[in-house]
Amino acid sequence: MPHTFKIPLLRASVWSQAGPVSLSPFLDQAAGAPDVAFLDPLIRRRLSPLGRGMLHCAHRAVGNLGPMPSVFCSRHGEASRTLPVLDDLAQGLQPSPAQFTMNVHNATAGIWSIARRDPSPSLSLAAGPETFAWGLVEAHAIHTAGPDVPVLLVHGDAPLPPLLATFDVVPQPLHALALLIGLPARHHLVLTWAPEARTPGVQGLREGPRATDFEAPGGPWSSADGAWIWRVD
């Protein structure tokens, strides 16, 4: 039996290097250099291009609203920072403290929290090719448990560095997306999961809804856990 998640949305913002692929009036869309002028220069200098894209979208989605819980999700996170750290260690050199500090998976969430002086709970996740889907479920669960306060979901990913790229069978471009889940909803993201549509014997690769699909919702996306379909009402 299919399960349907009806997620109330207040705002949505997407950013990619390539630029918009749709002209949906619901989506705030941007390309080129992310706008992170709202951050103090001494804070924003530490952000990677991925972090800048993610916080551009987060800021566009949240605006001047007050404290709120957040879920940050990225499949590979700051892999481009992790590799030089490992490289230095392999050569017996001291790694860069700044690279080390900012290579952790919750680095961008930390910058967001510090910049906004927001002590609300924040979660940073990675779940392989289904990262965005499970970030969405997690953010929706948090909002369902406390519907009086909006919940921010931020997703972003970037291609892996060349040395690691062969491990990624579903490479994604540099992109970011933020959804503000809250009431009263302006739109609903209707996500349907049909576990009985699972393909028997599916091994390895899992495909779930991806943030890059958000501008053109549809499906079904086949996964080892079933099939997913979504639309925005």
Binding site: Q94, P97, T101
Partner: peptide, 13 residues
């Protein structure tokens, strides 16, 4: 200038 302890380590290194 507003630098912090991570900057001190980074700069020293």
């Amino acid at each position: 200038l507003g630098l912090d302890s991570i900057d001190a380590f980074e700069l020293g290194l």
